Computed example of a mutant assay.
Amino acid sequence: MVNAFSFACSACGKCCNSPPAMSLPELFRHRDLFVGCIAIGRVPRRRLHEKLRVGKHENILSGAEIAAFDTIADTLLHRAGDTFSITTQGYDYPSLARCPALEDDGRCAIHFEGKPVTCEVVPLDPLVPDALQHLVLAGRNQSAAYLGADCIQEGERTGAALMVAEGRIEDASAKDALARRRASLAAEREVWGKTVFESLRKDLFESPAALARVPAGGFLTISIAPALLAVAGVSARCRQLCLDYIDSQLALIERCIAQALLRRRLDDRPFTRELRGFASAYQRAKAILAVPVSAGDSSSQPSRVPYVEAYLSGADR
Rank of each mutant, 00 (worst) to 15 (best):
N3G: 05
R98G: 03
A285T: 14
L52F: 07
V35L: 04
N141E: 15
E120P: 00
N17L: 05
R31H: 12
L61I: 13
S6N: 06
K175V: 06
G218M: 09
A149R: 09
S223D: 00
A101L: 03
C119Y: 03
A161Y: 07
L178A: 07
E65C: 08
V117I: 14
L132C: 03
I86W: 04
V2N: 08
R239V: 00
F84W: 01
A174M: 10
H30F: 03
Q133L: 12
R168E: 14
F205N: 00
L137V: 09
R42C: 09
D247Y: 08
L52I: 11
R276T: 12
S199L: 01
R255E: 11
A144E: 15
H78N: 09
R168M: 06
G218C: 10
A68E: 13
S248V: 04
R269L: 15
D105A: 01
T88N: 03
E103I: 01
A216R: 06
D176P: 05
K51M: 14
V35Q: 00
F5N: 04
G114V: 02
C37F: 02
R317H: 15
A281T: 11
E103V: 03
C15D: 12
A227G: 07
C37D: 00
L61D: 06
S62T: 13
L241I: 14
D125I: 07
L132K: 00
G217I: 01
A177N: 04
N59D: 07
M1C: 10
H49M: 08
V308M: 05
L61F: 07
Y307S: 05
L76G: 02
C9S: 10
C238V: 01
T75L: 10
L211W: 06
P20W: 01
V305M: 03
V214P: 00
A183Y: 04
L147P: 07
D125C: 15
S300R: 13
E170H: 02
E103A: 06
S280V: 11
H78I: 06
D92L: 02
A73Q: 09
L27H: 01
L102H: 02
C256E: 14
S184N: 08
A165Y: 04
A172R: 11
F7V: 04
E120W: 05
A97D: 12
T272A: 03
A131K: 09
G139D: 10
A165I: 05
S62G: 04
V164R: 00
S303T: 07
F69H: 14
R42H: 14
G159T: 05
A161K: 12
G41N: 08
I72K: 02
F112L: 13
K51S: 12
F69Y: 15
G63Q: 12
R31K: 15
I66G: 03
C256F: 09
G41W: 03
A258G: 09
S18F: 13
T158Q: 13
G233Q: 13
V308Y: 01
A295V: 05
R201G: 04
S199I: 01
G217K: 02
A160W: 08
D247N: 13
P226N: 02
K286F: 08
R79D: 09
Y93D: 08
A186Y: 07
A216V: 11
C108M: 06
Q249E: 13
Q283F: 06
F278K: 00
